[in-house]
Design a protein around this nucleic acid. Structure first.
Ligand SMILES: [Mn+2]
Ligand SMILES: [Mn+2]
Ligand SMILES: [Mn+2]
Ligand SMILES: [Mn+2]
Lengths: 165, 165
DNA sequence: TCTTAATTATAGCAATGGCTATGATTGCAC
DNA sequence: GTGCAATCATAGCCATTGCTATAATTAAGA
């Protein structure tokens, strides 16, 4: 790339290039773990509710085909997050449980935060499903602080999104 | 999938299946437009700043290789969002400009909102790059309202993130 | 037991988004 | 004008995430 001396001729201002590339890289990384997080979280939910998590149930809840789930579960098993018992469904390893619990907590905080902002539960549910994967630890703390400072709305929102025992 | 009568045996509560699948579907759709939005927004920024947007500059700012950009630009041209002038760089069509402006405004609001929450500018920048694509119109309105209700912090944050003329 | 329905696995395809290596053009400086 | 450096295009590779169609296996009921 060539350096252009006439850059300052324009009054438009660009973000620092190094900073911007860092943002894009981090976002691409987050994108790669989105699916994994949603899978283990959903599996944990199904296990809590039904005491089992079958491929067909996971597929139905995600809105994808069963072979798509089969392929992803193989990957999760390779990564040591789940254990497949033949025709008995999927179970989480310790590592998988940890990731599921972390993802679930973050998901609930994000969703409750959106509700506390006055967003409708339906929209909060939909938006949280995507936003959660791009919320850093610092942002999650800010969301939590905000929820604590608005106890009524925040409290109700948290209660409304609780999905575990 | 088999119906299980013992579902109520557990005290764990699952979100409604139809609602959940709608969330996942919407999130997958958003994921598909993420890259497109980032590209047109970045191209608009480069055009405002440098009066041209070359593949190498786009690649450098995104942190990807130049052929990756070439392939994506071909797709954007097919979709009628950009126009490639041979060895003169990339330009936005009217449709591309509209999408870029919409994406840029949403991006700025999200980033300013995070700053107004007390999140550091660096973290706000990184998180906003991913979050923006999953923010619905309703959530964007809620963010805007929040910014208007916290004029000092919000105003400063917005000023700090302005990147256009 | 044995038959069947549920469950899971596999094969084969497509689209997307990365990469490196290399070739082709063009613009500009000399 | 010519040559070189910059810019862009292309080929070929891989991984991921989807799909449909179909086979294989298992659990369970008659
Ligand atoms: Mn989630
Ligand atoms: Mn999610
Ligand atoms: Mn953006
Ligand atoms: Mn972005």
């Amino acid at each position: 790339m060539v350096e252009r001396a006439d850059s300052s001729e324009s009054n438009a201002v660009l973000v620092d290039a190094n900073a911007q590339v860092e943002s894009f890289r981090q976002t691409r990384n987050n994108r790669r773990s989105e699916l994994v997080e949603d899978y283990v979280e959903l599996i944990a939910d199904l296990l809590d509710h039904d005491h089992e998590a079958r491929q067909v149930d996971i597929a139905q809840r995600l809105g994808v085909a069963q072979p798509t789930v089969a392929k992803m579960l193989k990957r999760l098993a390779t990564e040591g997050l789940v254990q497949q018992r033949r025709y008995r469904g999927i179970f989480l390893t310790v590592e998988g449980k940890n990731l599921a619990e972390k993802s679930r907590e973050r998901h609930q905080i994000v969703e409750a935060f959106l509700c506390a902002l006055g967003i409708s539960p339906e929209t909060a549910r939909i938006d949280a499903e995507g936003i959660e994967h791009h919320v850093s630890a610092e942002t999650l703390r800010a969301f939590t602080t905000f929820l604590e400072q608005t106890p009524q709305k925040g409290g109700m929102a948290v209660a409304a999104t609780v999905r575990k025992i």
